[in-house]
């Protein structure tokens, strides 16, 4: 564990808590993409299959349980409890255009052609594009609530911090995982234009409103 990875995990934790607070306080899921949350649930489920078979640390297990639990709770809030406020018309990204290529790539490019390894690789590739339905929805509605912007900023920062973690681990431990790094770079790049909007607008107290 290193400071970059710890900050990254805390940023990820903060993003999930911000999202849950937004939904619980406003009792609304307006502006939130249910499809992205379903993709994140798929990512966590695929990545944490070893939750019961390989024990890394208490911290690791607790975080995995928390991430899986909250993402399914978020899906419950979107599609059941606050279903009336779910904006399915704007949440229209075709996720099959993500799942199929990512699934194929996981078969072709992985560290080891073994089931658990391919599923893990699939979760890494899927996570890098899982935010697209959410960003697509914001571009369609033309705006994002400030609290949703904070959620996205924290979520985008988490993988950016992981990139620093991988640089640190490369020099400190000689650890290097090309698949995770490449997917992490793609994932962070997808947030860049949002980061620009966030820093130039939200930090000055304005709302994010894209030219629709």
């Amino acid at each position: 564990m290193n400071i970059f990875r710890l900050c990254g995990d805390m940023s990820h934790l903060a993003a999930i808590i911000i999202l849950l607070l937004k939904m619980w306080k406003t009792r609304s899921v307006a502006g939130i993409s249910g499809k992205s949350q379903i993709l994140f649930a798929t990512v966590f489920t695929a990545r944490y299959l070893d939750l019961f078979t390989s024990f890394i640390s208490i911290y690791n297990t607790c975080m995995k349980v928390f991430f899986i639990g909250t993402v399914y709770f978020t899906i419950y809030l979107i599609y059941m409890k606050f279903k009336a406020t779910y904006d399915s018309n704007h949440d229209s990204f075709r996720v099959e255009f993500l799942i199929v290529p990512v699934g194929g790539l996981a078969f072709l490019v992985n560290h080891e052609f073994a089931p658990l390894e391919i599923i893990w690789t699939f979760s890494i590739y899927l996570e890098s594009v899982a935010i697209l339905p959410q960003l697509f929805m914001i571009s369609k509605t033309g705006e994002a609530e400030t609290i949703t912007s904070h959620y996205l900023f924290a979520l985008g920062s988490y993988r950016a911090l992981y990139l620093c973690n991988w640089i640190y681990r490369y020099y400190a431990e000689g650890f290097f995982d090309l698949i995770a790094v490449v997917a992490g770079v793609v994932q962070t790049i997808l947030y860049c234009d949002f980061f620009y909007l966030y820093i130039t607008k939200v930090m000055k107290g304005k709302k994010i409103s894209l030219p629709a």
Binding site: D9, N60, M63, H111, F175, D177, A180
Partner: peptide, 10 residues
């Protein structure tokens, strides 16, 4: 890279 180490991240 040994296997466990590769998957020690969240």
């Amino acid at each position: 890279v040994e296997k466990v180490k590769r998957h020690d991240e969240l």
